[in-house]
């Protein structure tokens, strides 16, 4: 993996990821994540569901970022990501993170055609005529934020901009699907940071496996991308967005 790809995967890359717990905060509130053991079970479940979906989408976006210029592909991939995210709270979290990542990545790699095309596709979306316009209106009626691209799509295009291939894009996506929740858990449960990192170290082989499974979808039709769901993550995300006190956005 290139240094440019490491930069993208680094939590210090200014894309706002620290504001999201990936469902750990509501799980701590619900009492289902309490310690290192329950955290590890949470991470394994998250990795093979949300992590696999993100890895597949990121790999697909990375594969096509250099070759696809027009909006239809990015709109199709956006619709596929929406269809894999039934929870409005999670769609919103993904789009907010995607918007922040797109801003940072466009400053880092201003010439990247994939990032430019995604930004143009997002700008063209609200108020557009034709198919999908009714959808935008009804989403506006329920107040859902649609002003950003899905995070995994931007991540894939940014990886391509950083000179990385679909395999590396999938690896960053799968790693981030569990690394962010670990640092959130350290803060929320006052866990020993070294032992928490030890949990992550034990998961690295599984992260690689999930990334490889996701990367295998890079060249296929977006409709075939993995769609593994995690019911508890959906339920927790919806409870969290309605909670009175929140440290993390999601």
């Amino acid at each position: 993996m290139s240094v440019a790809a490491l930069l993208l995967g680094d939590s210090r890359f200014p894309a706002g990821g620290h504001a999201h717990s990936g469902g750990v905060e509501p799980a701590v509130t619900a009492g289902t994540v309490r310690d290192l053991e329950t955290l590890e079970a949470f991470l394994r479940g998250r990795l093979r569901t949300a992590g696999l979906v993100a890895a597949g989408i990121a790999a697909c976006a990375c594969e096509r970022a250099a070759s696809v210029s027009g909006g239809p592909f990015w709109d199709d991939l956006d619709a596929e990501a929406d269809a894999r995210t039934p929870s409005p709270a999670q769609r919103e979290a993904s789009r907010r993170q995607g918007r922040a990542l797109l801003r940072a990545a466009r400053v880092a790699w201003p010439e990247a055609t994939g990032l430019l095309a995604i930004a143009a596709a997002v700008r063209a979306r609200p108020g557009e005529a034709g198919p999908g316009s009714g959808r935008v209106t009804s989403d506006a009626a329920r107040g859902e934020y649609r002003g950003g691209p899905h995070h995994a799509i931007v991540l894939g295009a940014a990886a391509a901009a950083a000179g990385a291939g679909p395999g590396a894009a999938a690896r960053i996506a799968a790693y981030q699907a569990v690394a962010g929740p670990v640092s959130a858990a350290v803060r929320l449960l006052a866990l020993d940071p070294m032992r928490a990192t030890g949990v992550l170290a034990r998961l690295t082989r599984e992260i690689d496996e999930v990334a490889e499974r996701g990367a295998a979808f890079a060249g296929g039709p977006p409709g075939d991308l993995p769609c593994a769901s995690a019911p508890a993550l959906d339920l927790l995300a919806e409870a969290h967005i309605r909670a009175e006190v929140r440290l993390f956005e999601s």
């Binding site: 509130t29 619900a30 929406d82 269809a83 959906d234 339920l235 919806e238 409870a239 969290h240 309605r242």
Partner: peptide
């Protein structure tokens, strides 16, 4: 109630999809 629900594991949610 939203606040009470947040204290225990939520067991049902109604998710409006992006489509109809």
């Amino acid at each position: 109630a939203p606040v009470a629900a947040a204290r225990a594991m939520p067991e049902v949610a109604v998710l409006p999809l992006a489509g109809p």
